[in-house]
């Protein structure tokens, strides 16, 4: 956070303009990508809380996104309101975060492994919740949170866009408020310097658990929305989601900056949208769907190592410019 963004505003404007242009020439693909990006943006906010605020790489999200989808799918097919089901997915996510938090802090298991343990456990739990590996949520059979918008005869994907934006506005406002409170400040400080936080009388264990819960709650919520949008919940839908989350996060931070907390929250959401647009474009250009994950992993690797690559490049350029002197 708070690195000076190297991307000038002109590049940002160009990125947004390019997306608008693409929208006019291929509205269906673009509205699909943008609405999906917005829904995934909620998940990326969750990843932001662990990866950036708490400084923990939490793999639980790969299971939590499915958990949210499974809980919502099970409840919707059982006849509950899709809104209630989506909130239930949030609470299920909180519990997943609680489990990882307890494993990590109370039982002192490294964060990465704690996440993997929860994620593994969630695989079985998710199968139990759904009762099967895949639950269809067909719009003409069961309602979804998007159903209320259908009577307006909106174009495809627009209901998801509206719901996505509405949820994000509320969530960003809540997160901005929360991380400005005493409790939120304590969580931010914990990710920054746990020594200082303990010395100031704050229980870092509780702060880490709380942060993990909040993060996974958002991911569960996102999982429920994504399942309703794609009209099914599937046991495999979480695979690679942490990488998608990180890719979106980094793209957003690099492109749209991290000047302030508010700015960063908006950036990572835009990052999720840009990510989806990029994916839609490479598929349109003919990348086989099965090669997608390889492409994503490579992209994220490049993004993550950009600073190191820059310094390597600088050293190489320097050594080329100034050939070593004879006898040193």
């Amino acid at each position: 956070m708070n690195k000076k963004s190297v991307i000038p505003w002109i590049v940002r404007a160009a990125a947004l303009a390019a997306m608008l242009y693409l929208w006019t020439i291929m509205p269906t693909i673009m509205s699909g990508a943008v609405s999906l990006g917005l829904l995934w943006g909620i998940m990326v906010l969750g990843v932001f809380i662990t990866y950036r605020v708490l400084d923990i790489a939490d793999l639980t999200v790969e299971g939590t996104i499915v958990l949210g989808a499974s809980v919502a799918a099970r409840m919707i097919t059982a006849g509950y309101s899709p809104f209630l089901a989506t909130f239930a997915a949030f609470f299920a996510g909180l519990l997943a975060g609680l489990l990882t938090g307890v494993l990590h802090t109370k039982l002192r298991i490294p964060a990465l492994l704690s996440g993997i343990l929860t994620l593994t456990a969630l695989y079985s739990i998710n199968l139990r919740v759904m009762g099967r590996p895949n639950t269809p949520l067909l719009p003409f059979k069961v309602p979804s949170v998007f159903t209320p918008f259908e009577r307006f005869n909106l174009p495809l994907n627009i209901p998801a866009l509206i719901v996505g934006v509405a949820c994000l506005v509320v969530i960003v406002a809540l997160l901005y408020w929360f991380f400005g409170t005493e409790l939120g400040s304590a969580i931010r400080a914990t990710g920054n310097n746990p020594n200082m936080v303990r010395a100031q009388g704050i229980n870092t264990t509780s702060m880490i658990i709380l942060g993990l819960m909040l993060s996974n709650g958002l991911v569960g919520f996102a999982g429920a929305l994504i399942a309703q949008h794609q009209t099914f919940a599937d046991i495999t839908m979480g695979i690679g989601s942490i990488v998608i989350g990180l890719a979106s996060l980094i793209i957003g931070e690099v492109l749209f900056g991290t000047k302030s907390f508010k700015n960063t929250l908006v950036s990572v959401i835009l990052g999720a949208v840009v990510y989806r647009v990029i994916i839609a474009l490479v598929i349109k250009m003919g990348l086989a769907a099965n090669d997608l994950k390889l492409f994503v992993a490579a992209t994220v690797t490049v993004a993550l190592t950009l600073p190191i690559m820059q310094s390597y490049a600088r050293t190489i350029i320097k050594s080329l410019r100034r050939p070593e002197k004879g006898g040193e």
Binding site: M1, R188, A189, N193, N195, A199
Partner: peptide, 8 residues
Amino acid sequence: MMGTAASM
């Protein structure tokens, strides 16, 4: 570095 939170 120990006594303060650097990014706050």
